[in-house]
């Protein structure tokens, strides 16, 4: 019977993922209701469970895709991959009030530039304080703090070593994962309860997976607004980091 289970889960991996995630959501909402009286949102718990499982999967297999590297759960990679994620993000825009987007538009753009800049500066300051002195290394690590895609793209453009590129990816992953965890916890303090602040949040944080999951765990109605600005963030980072920002770092060190 074990063999049959393995064969079916492996062959119908996407269906298995639907079942696994369905069960996870059910348990998370049950825990939310039963133990936190709904104070900690079910979606937030589900995302935390997902991250914990990803950690277990990563440690077990040494792979790059969390639980999706475990053969039984390989469908999670397809279900949570970029293709379906982006389709679902776009679907959340259905019914959005265009007026809201127009009103927050300018601030959203300001937030985008400010977000790339402060993340980059944060990464650069940490890199310098850990003794990195070459402009290429500092820029690559700083670009990683923007997103885990900006880091390696910048590093490859500037010819950084593979260790530094790996560090930059790790920095971006940490930012993304911490955003998933801390957004719902801090949402009240930072006023993340309306479309306008959600758009600014998306522009400031930018890392798509972090913004997507952080807002989902806070209030699903805010997702389209945050996702709208965040989608420009990585592109802007790739535009600025290896060029203007690299020149600025070179001038300073």
């Amino acid at each position: 019977m074990n063999d049959s289970i393995m064969t079916v889960f492996d062959k119908y991996h996407l269906i298995a993922a639907f079942a696994v995630i369905g069960l996870t959501m059910f348990l998370a909402h049950w825990v939310s209701k039963r133990f936190t009286r709904g104070r900690l949102h079910g979606s937030a718990i589900a995302i935390l469970v997902g991250l914990a499982l990803a950690w277990v999967g990563g440690v077990m297999t040494g792979g790059k895709h969390g639980l999706a590297d475990v053969t039984l759960f390989s469908g999670l990679g397809l279900m949570g991959g970029g293709m379906l994620r982006d389709l679902a993000i776009i679907a959340t825009a259905y019914g959005v009030r265009f007026q809201e987007i127009k009103q927050a538009g300018v601030r959203g753009v300001i937030a985008l530039f400010a977000g790339v800049l402060i993340s980059f500066v944060a990464g650069a300051v940490v890199a310098v304080s850990f003794g990195y002195t070459s402009a290429v290394d500092i820029t690559t690590i700083a670009a990683g703090a923007v997103t885990y895609i900006v880091g390696p793209v910048t590093g490859a453009t500037l010819g950084a070593s593979s260790e530094v590129i790996a560090l930059s990816i790790a920095a971006g992953l940490v930012k993304s994962i911490l955003t998933m965890i801390f957004t719902p916890l801090t949402a009240k303090w930072i006023g993340l309860d309306n479309p306008r602040s959600a758009m600014i949040f998306g522009g400031l944080i930018g890392t798509t997976s972090g913004v997507a999951a952080g807002l989902a765990a806070t209030d699903a109605r805010l997702v389209p607004y945050g996702a709208m600005t965040a989608t420009f963030y990585t592109g802007l980072g790739i535009l600025l980091a290896p060029t203007v920002l690299f020149l600025a770092v070179s001038a300073l060190v």
Partner: peptide, 25 residues
């Protein structure tokens, strides 16, 4: 389906690498 998809995304993140990347990261 957005939230379930995001949960699947969370479960396929490289969490282990993120937290073993050292203090700098």
């Amino acid at each position: 389906m957005y939230i379930p998809i995001v949960v699947a995304m969370a479960a396929s993140q490289n969490v282990a690498a993120a937290f073993s990347g050292g203090l700098v990261a």
